[in-house]
Write a protein that binds this DNA or RNA. Sequence first.
DNA 1: CACTTGACCTGTCCGC
DNA 2: TGCGGACAGGTCAAGT
Length: 290
Amino acid sequence: MPELPEVETIRIGLAKLLPGLVIQDVQHDWQKSFPNAPADAVRFMMKASVKAVHRRAKVLIIDLSSKYSLVIHLKMTGQLVYVGKKRFGAGHPNKSLAGDLPDKSTRVTVDFTDGSKLFFNDQRKFGWMRLMPKIDVTEIDIFRKVGTEPLEDDFTVERFIERLSRRERSNIKSVLLDQTIIAGVGNIYADESLWGAKIHPSTLVGDIPKAKMVALYSSLRDVLNLSIEKGGSTDRNYVDSEGKPGSYLSFANVFRKNGQPCPRCGTTIEKIKVAGRGTHICPHCQKEPK
DNA sequence: CACTTGACCTGTCCGC
DNA sequence: TGCGGACAGGTCAAGT
């Protein structure tokens, strides 16, 4: 579920909430959700305080005062929700989406010494949290191979075109989803940015004229920035660090809008399959390549 | 190398 | 109301 804007929204929230808190205990209910966590590793978390919260691609990194970091990938249905002591229990701000915690999808609970808690929930159990020595964090595959961050200042349109051109003979949608080319784009923002640039998702990268590549670059950055501003996209599962949903989907133009009119031309939006993924297009604005 | 398929899981929705 | 199948925003490995 969570793509760059959702993970970044969580990071912004946690960066305000966690630093300075001291870990008292950690529990987990599913080995795959908290791998590499032998008793020893968990012991190294005790009494450590949170120093900082970072994001790279769709991965969160919580640096501790010890030599370790908590590294978290939310995959499809992961949530990372902080519940402060004052709000814990009755009156939680979002009963409908984050409910009373822990619940049946809570995989890992981190207790802090002030009585507050950080819950890692994950319905489908695809996500994970790992405790890693800081020096090893960059050795995770996704960090070794991951592409450029699309919102960094030095991610110019020239770099965008250079990176995409490494996959000239692939269709543009699968290239946008390829984390080794550009980091953080998933199905929602791939569809939205392609609609913005009027490019059919099956178009081969090498067949896209330069002007459209420039349009796609702008469209992608605009869509990601707008979504961060709106707190991300909530379909079913996504909530931010305080358990609140994001509102971007009400600004989306094509994603999950099949059957509705295209906001630009009024043609009915269709849902097709490209690169094995559900894909939303306006068949008038985004002409299928020959 | 490009692309597809299947796997990892649970929950929901849709049609019969 | 029950049941089977398709599907869900992400990655990874293996096969063609």
